[in-house]
Structures are given as structure tokens and as C-alpha cells.
């Protein structure tokens, strides 16, 4: 509810501010009044977002637990892929893992509200792992199995490192 009210106030403030500023010359009184409304909206919005994140974490339906589940499954899947010999099969399975991991970044975004620094550390580790898996995919697609296997291992280790980073944030 707080987030909704915050959004409404932010939008209302923006419309008022933009109209006041559009006049030649701008109506500074209107701009300042609108900024105050926007400011209250921003505070409410941010508080509402924080509460939503805490609720999701308590329910176990979102937040860090969900991210942990995604990473654990991806680590298991990549572990399985590393046992496969046939390179076309590796590439197909890897495509599925990469698509599955696509959702990780969006689900991790709310962590920004808690700590931008922690979010930055988590995404740095995750992106490094993801890029390694992307390189493995390309190498397998090109028939360079040695390079593919090396980067598959880098990706596997990178995902484990991301999981450890996530646990340290928790």
C-alpha cells in the first residue's frame, strides 16, 4: 500500500513539476511544491519496497532463499553437464541453464535496497560465472571442446563463488 501511494505521489508530483517548469519562464513555486510531493512519494515508495522484500524473505518465496535455490539448481545442472561427452548435447543443456539463470538478475534486484555494495559484489561474481558459461557455449558451438570444458569449469566454480557470496550477505 505504501508503495502504491508513493508511486501515485511521485507521478502526481512529476506531472505538476513538469507543467510548472514548462511555462516560459518556469513557475518556481509550483516546481518546489511538486518536488515536496515527489519527495514524500519517494520516501513512501522506498519504505514500501523494503517491507515487500522483508515479507518475501520471511515467506521464503523470494529474496535470498529464492536466489539460493536458483544457484544450487544451476550448480547441480552444470555439474551434470560436465559429465556429458557429446558436444552438441553439452551446448543444448548449457543453453537451458543459461536461460534458467536469466531470471537470477531480476530476482536479485531488490537486494539493491538493502545494500548496494553487497548487491554489487553478488552480481560481479554472478556475471563472471555467466560470462564463463557463455564462452563455454560459444566454444562448444565452434567445436573447440578443450576451451569449452575449461570455461565450463570456470563457470561451475564461479557459480559456487556466487553462492558463497550470497551466503555471506545473508
Amino acid at each position: 500500500m505504501k508503495k502504491l501511494i508513493g508511486n501515485i505521489m511521485l507521478t502526481g508530483g512529476l506531472i505538476g513539476g513538469a507543467i510548472s517548469a514548462a511555462r516560459i519562464p518556469p513557475m518556481w513555486g509550483g516546481v518546489i511544491g511538486s518536488l515536496i510531493i515527489m519527495g514524500v512519494g519517494i520516501v513512501l515508495r522506498r519504505r514500501g519496497e523494503k517491507e515487500e522484500l522483508h515479507r518475501a524473505t520471511q515467506k521464503g518465496s523470494g529474496g535470498i532463499q529464492e536466489l539460493e535455490r536458483i544457484l544450487t539448481k544451476a550448480i547441480e545442472d552444470v555439474g551434470e553437464i560436465m559429465k556429458i561427452e557429446e558436444h552438441n548435447k553439452v551446448r543444448e543443456s548449457l543453453s537451458k541453464v543459461l536461460e534458467f539463470l536469466d531470471g537470477f538478475a531480476e530476482k536479485a534486484r531488490p537486494l539493491r535496497i538493502e545494500s548496494l555494495k553487497a548487491y554489487g559484489q553478488l552480481m560481479t561474481a554472478f556475471s563472471r560465472a555467466e560470462r564463463s558459461l557463455n564462452r563455454a557455449w560459444s566454444a562448444y558451438a565452434d567445436g573447440y571442446e578443450g576451451e569449452g570444458r575449461t570455461y565450463l569449469e570456470f563457470g561451475y566454480e564461479g557459480l559456487k563463488e556466487t553462492l558463497n557470496t550470497l551466503k555471506s550477505i545473508e
Binding site: G17, S20, A21, W28, V31, L35, M38, G39
Partner: peptide
């Protein structure tokens, strides 16, 4: 004016 609104 736009700068202040964009900043906010």
C-alpha cells in the same frame, strides 16, 4: 528545472 526534477 528539468535537472532538479530528473535528479529527484
Amino acid at each position: 528545472a528539468g535537472g532538479i526534477l530528473g535528479f529527484a
